[in-house]
């Protein structure tokens, strides 16, 4: 499909007898943000390194922007920006000098280097510290400098390994904004993370990794349907009545479970909020909260791994 920037088929990585990546398939589409999720050691970073041709594959095929990273790593690396987990820069050099080195490695024409660096540094709001040594930079600033490198490179695909790990909430928020900015400028973004709620807020699609396999793949809503079951979960808080008996017989309600004192969780096969509210009020209960629960990735993740462990 011409719309895929990355196509992975049966990708395999063996470390001895251990299958670090076990014949996975992945498609990353042009202009989307794709999240690789999973516990540490699930094979996310190994997959990323194979996409870049930084690690040998043990089998399967990879196609990045029409190139094979095993045979044409230079072509791939020219077009793909990579932000490694806890990226490092040369501390004794300034931010600008670091980027100049990268620009030289990229063989960017000399006349363009200054302009592209300045533009990239502005896009990550680091232009005021461009001539400061990187040793003075915080973790968040280094990550942003890494994004600036990708912007300067004018990459078509950005691969970010754990971009938000170790950042404070504000820095995380800023970095995610920049990742959205990359998407806006037409870059396909592949990111790995275990910060699930953050990932949920930026990712168009996600793949859940487990022991070298892609366990689940799709949009967050699709995954929720697969793992948590289809249906509308509701949260009801009320006092004065027993919600479980009151709601008996409402069409569409599948389960009602008391979660704590005065709080119930309802799963229905359609939107039953109006009926639930009416029933509670007419039964004389004081309805204090009625919320449609958005499926959260965290829930999907936790539930999936609970079930995977139970199955094992």
């Amino acid at each position: 499909m011409a719309d895929n920037v990355i196509e992975v088929r049966g990708l395999l990585k063996l470390y001895g007898a251990q299958r670090a990546v076990n014949a996975i398939d992945l498609d990353i589409r042009r202009g989307e943000i794709f999240g690789l999720l999973g516990p540490n050691g699930a094979g996310k970073t190994t997959t990323i390194l194979m996409l870049l041709g930084l690690t040998e594959t043990s089998g399967g095929t990879v196609n990045v922007l029409g190139f094979d990273p095993v045979r044409q790593p230079l072509e791939v690396k020219r077009r793909v920006g990579y932000l490694p987990d806890a990226v490092g820069f040369y501390d004794h050099l300034t931010a600008r000098e670091n980027l100049v080195y990268t620009a030289r490695l990229l063989d960017i024409p000399r006349r363009q280097i200054d302009g592209r660096i300045l533009e990239a540094m502005k896009s990550v709001k680091l232009d005021d510290v461009i001539d400061k040594r990187v040793s003075t930079f915080s973790r968040g600033m280094r990550q942003r400098l890494g994004i600036a490198e990708i912007v300067m490179k004018q990459a078509e695909v950005a691969i970010l390994d754990e971009p938000t790990s170790g950042l404070d909430p504000h820095a995380t928020f800023e970095l995610l904004e920049m990742i959205r900015g990359l998407k806006k400028s037409g870059v396909a973004v592949l990111l790995s993370s275990h910060l699930l709620d953050r990932v949920q807020s930026v990712c168009d699609r996600v793949a859940l990794f487990n022991k070298g396999n892609v366990a689940l793949m799709g949009t967050v809503v699709e995954l929720a349907n697969q793992v948590l079951g289809a249906g509308h979960p509701l949260q009801v808080e009320a006092s004065g009545i027993d919600v479980a008996t009151t709601l008996n017989g409402i069409e569409g309600v599948q389960t009602v479970r008391q979660e704590s004192d005065g709080s119930w969780r309802i799963v229905a096969d359609r939107d039953v909020r109006a009926a639930v509210a009416q029933r509670i009020v007419s039964a004389g209960g004081a309805l204090t909260r009625l919320a449609d629960l958005q499926p959260s990735l965290e829930e999907v993740y936790t539930r999936y791994f609970q079930e995977a462990r139970r199955a094992a």
Binding site: R78, V87, G88, F89, L105, L106
Partner: peptide
């Protein structure tokens, strides 16, 4: 150790 190796090697060089 400075974690620059993977970043440098992700540029188009062998």
């Amino acid at each position: 150790n400075r974690r620059t190796l993977s970043r440098v090697l992700s540029q188009p060089i062998y």
